[in-house]
Design a protein around this nucleic acid. Sequence first.
DNA 1: GATAATTGCTTTAAGCTTAAAATAACTTGG
DNA 2: CCAAGTTATTTTAAGCTTAAAGCAATTATC
Lengths: 169, 169
Amino acid sequence: MDDQAIPLDAETKAVEMPEDHREELRLWLRLLTCTTLIEGEVRSRLRERFDVTLPRFDLMAQLDKAPDGMTLSDLSKRMMVSNGNLTGLVERLVASGHILRTASLTDRRATVISLTESGRGEFRTMAAEHELWIADLFGDLTEKDRSDLMRLLGKTKLSARRAIQGEGQ
Amino acid sequence: MDDQAIPLDAETKAVEMPEDHREELRLWLRLLTCTTLIEGEVRSRLRERFDVTLPRFDLMAQLDKAPDGMTLSDLSKRMMVSNGNLTGLVERLVASGHILRTASLTDRRATVISLTESGRGEFRTMAAEHELWIADLFGDLTEKDRSDLMRLLGKTKLSARRAIQGEGQ
DNA sequence: GATAATTGCTTTAAGCTTAAAATAACTTGG
DNA sequence: CCAAGTTATTTTAAGCTTAAAGCAATTATC
């Protein structure tokens, strides 16, 4: 920690100098800005157009991909939200008739959640329009931009997972 | 909606066929996943390490960049959150001694928010460590990856803004 | 088969977030 | 000046979100 009087050569500097990571920070902030911007717009359009919240839409989107339903734990992992969060969300969606709870046949702790007929219908209608919004929001990117971005985000995802997994050691 | 018997050539198809935009949708979901993943990790480290929430940290980060303080409206725009949201957040940060409210000299409606001495000190300590976390989370990306990603996200940001601005017409 | 550890879910308390409505202060155009 | 419109902020109601604690059911281990 105490700086020696002896001057450091470039190589030593590269190793010893505390690098600044402002570039990564700016990258993170831009990533966050993009997401917040798009998410906010989608949220507001879902509300205006269908009077539905984003979390509700997200939950239904997961269920639409699982014709036989999913347990709360599966949903929790897929949606990356806490278990307790889902309890309330599911409650409200059951109350509004969009989803159904059934006791699991194989595990008496678990409940299986699935879309009702009308829930699925409503979701599909919203999803079709939602897809167009997304296409428009990303509309100025070329095909190549999109595939490059996809690849780089894939790499980012892996990097983050590595950093997160690695910490517990 | 009724399909004609006459087969469409490729060009006509490209124009008339309702394109599917699953690619853009997957891109959006991946963007969201990356952000959620990183944001969740940062949130949890801030809590464990400094017992502070992400919104509090974000607010202080804005203030640290504005030595003379900012009004609530400025903060609201920068942080992309609602005005009402800030009222409560600011209240709690004042209560904990991190920030200060002063009446604006030029506008009696407005209040100027700024960091206290200790608030700034605490923030800088957290920010230094936070920067290392981010560097680590993005650590598997090369210099080129990062600059490519930065550029593509910049393009995405502009595209989204265009789509959002354009809607009001 | 009994004990221990894990898993699935709910509850709780606290805080975050939004949209919408309300209040107060400022600005602008006659 | 003054009415009309805008801007800065707060309040409200509803819902979202998390972490942590707790309970019940399952799985693993001996």
